[in-house]
Design a protein around this nucleic acid. Structure first.
Lengths: 209, 209
DNA sequence: TCTCAAATTATACACTTGATTAATTACCGC
DNA sequence: GCGGTAATTAATCAAGTGTATAATTTGAGA
């Protein structure tokens, strides 16, 4: 009786593989489909191995959530590039409403997690971190844009604006990711840019340069 | 050996009880917590009974989703009241960002369902219906508001505006429902009203009359 | 009051789940 | 090359899942 061949992997690699497999499972099959066996199969590994890297399934899922959220933010942040604040804001907006951030799989994973946040304190904490990080990013950008244009505002006003912009981007992200609609024929990027410009009270044309 | 007492209920009542119990379970325990036994317990009934009213659990969950979504829309619609379109729009906005629509339990249920839409075609269909109904409501309102103000726009422009407003309201709804933040000290209603007014290009003061 | 169909319960089943443990294998250091 | 430790597999377990079915109770109508 011959066992299946295997080879050792560095701890970080295995953990990463398991997390990726978890996210894939959730994206395709929902949270309920992310069973220990399914995840192990996708990671090319045996179910028992998971327990060597994660104390239990809850920890695995929480780790996957952290990885997922920080990946989202990193992608959006990378879309900023550098340059004047207005350009960076435009980059953030574009990144938020286009793939891979705006994408059905991403939305499914996000929703599955959010649906569990309320009943799982471990994930509630993980969520808070990621959410605040994103809104802080917007808030900072708003402040810089306003300063750049010689119209600085109070921290409270910047924060208020960040709440609104964050909401708008989240909502657009959901609508687009949900697909279904004929968003393919719409220019979602210009819709997002124009809306944000209007809210900020600046000329939409300024975004295009 | 004595069985527990029970009494007959009209079909509609039992179905409604089971659906309510399902939504409560999902809201408190997540989708995974909405087991047949849990739902039956909350409905004060025996697990086997569920099968008399719903072919299987999938159907029960789908029915619960439909009930949930149409309830949400009905609540929002009721917030419109009657009167000039601008007033009705304000009512819709207010209803969207305050309880019981904006609420942690509501968000949890919504997210749990959305997380399953991608992997469950039955729910994908149920979702489409509800989503379009809400956006159509906004679209109609936008058209009326603009006509009312002597600035009618093309259907395409109204639709585009509806997409943006829907996104903004969805996003605010999520932020508020997620709680965590210090939204309690912020006037979410005025934030929502002012943002919508700005996007529509009208004076925010007009909402307050 | 009695009957009987419909509603409800109780019980059981086959299956899946997350977890545990012992046996086996790979590979690093010597 | 070789031994020993750490990584991995395989097999198993108890608990919980959705579903099926037979036994019982209810309540409306005759």
């Amino acid at each position: 009786m011959t066992r299946r061949a295997f080879h050792h992997e560095p701890e970080a690699v295995r953990q990463n593989d398991l997390i990726s497999a978890t996210l894939d499972s959730i994206g395709e099959l929902g949270l309920a489909g992310a069973t220990v066996r399914e995840v192990a199969y996708r990671a090319g590994v045996t179910p028992g191995l998971i327990r060597r890297y994660f104390d239990n399934k809850e920890r695995l899922v929480a780790a996957a959530y952290r990885t997922f959220i920080s990946g989202l933010i990193a992608t959006a942040e990378a879309g900023c590039g550098d340059g004047p604040a207005l350009t960076r804001l435009a980059g953030l907006i574009r990144a938020s409403v286009t793939a891979p951030v705006a994408d059905g799989r991403t939305l499914s994973i996000w929703a599955a997690f959010i649906g569990a946040v309320h009943s799982d304190p471990v994930m509630a904490e993980a969520h808070r971190e990621g959410y605040q990080a994103f809104r802080d990013l917007i808030e900072r950008l708003v402040g810089e844009v306003r300063a750049e244009r010689g119209a600085p505002a109070s921290p409270a006003e910047n924060r208020r604006m960040a709440i609104v912009l964050n909401a708008l981007l989240d909502g657009l992200w959901i609508e687009i990711s949900m697909g279904g609609d004929d968003f393919s024929e719409l220019d979602v990027v210009s819709i997002a840019l124009e809306s944000v410009a209007t809210l900020l009270g600046i000329d939409p044309a300024e975004f295009r340069e």
